[in-house]
C-alpha cells in the first residue's frame, strides 16, 4: 500500500487534484454569476485577490488565521454585492460586451490599487497547516496537512453551495430569477435582490479560492490570481458555463492535465494543458461537456 501511495503517479494525482479544486472553485464562482446575470466576470480573480489582501493582512495585527479567512470572505461578498449594484446593474439590457469591458477595467483598477496599497512584493501568509509530506515507514506519501486542508475546504464549499441552490428557499429563488426573471417577478420574487445575492455568493466562493492560493507556496501578490482565473475560466467553458457540476469537473480535469504535463513533459508547457483540453472539448461538444441543450433560449 505505502509503495503504491509513494509512486510518482499517485503524487501527480494528488498534486493535480489539489490545484484542480482551486480552479473548480473559481470556475464555480464564474458559473454562478453567468447563470444569474449573463456576465462573464473578468475581474473575478482580482476581486478575490483584493478581498484576500484586506482579510489576510489582518494577521499582521495579531488576528488569528481563521478570523482572517472569515474577514476575507465577508469583504469579498460585500465587494461582489457592491459591484453588481454599482457597476453592473446600470448595464442590464445593454450589449453583452459592455459589462465585459467594465469588468476588465475593474480588474486593472483593483490590481493597480493593490500594488499602491500593499506593494507588489509577494507576501507569504503563515500557513495554517504544514506543507511537509506525511511519511509511512520511510516512504513519502504525497499528502501534507495543507493539501488535505485545501481539498477539504474547497470540496466543503462546493457541497455547501450545491446544497444551498438545491434545497433552500433562497436557492430556489436564485435559480428561478436566473432562469426566468420576468415570471419570477410576476410571482412576487425580488429578482433584483437575488441578482445581488448571486454576485455576493460568487465573490465569496472566489475569495475562498484566493485565500487557499495565498496561504500556500504561491503567496499573495496583486496579480496572483491572473493565471488561476484563466484556468478557472477555461474550466467553466469546458463545463459549458451553465453547469456548476461541469465547472467543478472542468477544474479538476485541468488541474490533473497541468500536473501530468509538468511531470512528464516540461513545467514550461504546463499551462497548455488547459488549452488543449478546451480545444478538444469544444471540438467534441461545442455546447460544453455538461450542458444538456444545444442552444440557450433567449
Amino acid at each position: 500500500m505505502s509503495v503504491f501511495l509513494s509512486s510518482s503517479f499517485i503524487h501527480n494525482i494528488f498534486g493535480g487534484l489539489a490545484t484542480g479544486v482551486i480552479y473548480s472553485l473559481v470556475a464555480l464562482s464564474l458559473v454562478i454569476i453567468w447563470q444569474s446575470t449573463h456576465v462573464l466576470n473578468f475581474a473575478q480573480g482580482a476581486m478575490a485577490m483584493f478581498a484576500t489582501y484586506i482579510g489576510m493582512t489582518e494577521i499582521d495585527r495579531g488576528v488569528g488565521y481563521w478570523w482572517c479567512v472569515i474577514i476575507s470572505v465577508a469583504v469579498g461578498m460585500i465587494l461582489g454585492g457592491m459591484t453588481e449594484r454599482v457597476l453592473i446593474r446600470p448595464l442590464y439590457g445593454k450589449p453583452e460586451i459592455n459589462p465585459i469591458v467594465v469588468m476588465v477595467g475593474f480588474l486593472g483598477v483593483l490590481e493597480a490599487l493593490a500594488s499602491a496599497i500593499w506593494t507588489s512584493t509577494t507576501r507569504n501568509i503563515t500557513e495554517p497547516f504544514s506543507q511537509v509530506y506525511y511519511q509511512d515507514h520511510g516512504h513519502l506519501i504525497f499528502l501534507s496537512a495543507f493539501v488535505i486542508f485545501q481539498m477539504v475546504l474547497a470540496i466543503g464549499i462546493m457541497l455547501l453551495v450545491a446544497a444551498l441552490f438545491r434545497f433552500t428557499k433562497l436557492g430556489l429563488q436564485l435559480r428561478a430569477s436566473a432562469l426566468a426573471p420576468e415570471v419570477s417577478r410576476l410571482l412576487g420574487i425580488r429578482v433584483g435582490r437575488m441578482l445581488t445575492i448571486g454576485w455576493m455568493l460568487s465573490a465569496g466562493v472566489g475569495a475562498i479560492a484566493a485565500v487557499i492560493v495565498a496561504s500556500g507556496n504561491f503567496g499573495l501578490f496583486p496579480t496572483n490570481m491572473d493565471g488561476i482565473f484563466v484556468a478557472g475560466f477555461i474550466a467553466a467553458a469546458i463545463g459549458g458555463l451553465e453547469s456548476p457540476m461541469g465547472a467543478v469537473a472542468g477544474g479538476l480535469l485541468i488541474g490533473l492535465a497541468e500536473q501530468f504535463i509538468l511531470a512528464y513533459w516540461s513545467p514550461n508547457v504546463a499551462p497548455l494543458g488547459g488549452i488543449i483540453i478546451l480545444v478538444v472539448a469544444l471540438m467534441v461538444r461545442p455546447q460544453g461537456l455538461f450542458t444538456k441543450r444545444m442552444s440557450r433560449r433567449v
Binding site: 428557499k169 430556489l172 429563488q173 435559480r175 432562469l179 419570477s184 410571482l187 412576487g188 420574487i189
Partner: peptide, 12 residues
Amino acid sequence: LTVEENLRLGAL
C-alpha cells in the same frame, strides 16, 4: 424546475 418547485415558487 420540477412541478413542485414551480408551485413552491408561487407560494414563497
